[in-house]
């Protein structure tokens, strides 16, 4: 199953699921919840961290956290 870490720059997806224990509460409060949209805006130089738009909130998180958040329906920016 793909995770946020699989997104390419500019791609959007829907957050599917994750293990609550592994995700900081702060991220949930920012709107990182199942069913919400996520867009990868920018990847930092050297590939980490990731700059995301989650449900309208702009946050950056490290790849190791992104790998724990499963997503579905990746959409291309053009489609």
């Amino acid at each position: 199953m793909p995770t946020i870490a699989h997104l390419r720059k500019g791609e959007k997806a829907t957050i599917d699921d994750f293990e609550v224990e592994e995700i900081p509460l702060k991220l949930l409060e920012m709107g990182c919840l199942p069913g919400n949209s996520v867009e990868l805006i920018q990847i930092a130089p050297f590939g980490d961290p990731l700059y995301l738009n989650i449900n309208g909130a702009y946050v950056s998180i490290r790849v190791e956290t992104a790998q724990k958040i499963k997503i579905d329906r990746i959409q291309n920016p053009e489609s």
């Binding site: 900081p24 702060k26 991220l27 920012m30 961290p49 700059y51 909130a57 702009y58 946050v59 950056s60 998180i61 490290r62 190791e64 956290t65």
Partner: peptide, 8 residues
């Protein structure tokens, strides 16, 4: 480790 930064 965890790292969450708001990008205002």
């Amino acid at each position: 480790t965890y790292f969450v930064v708001e990008m205002p």
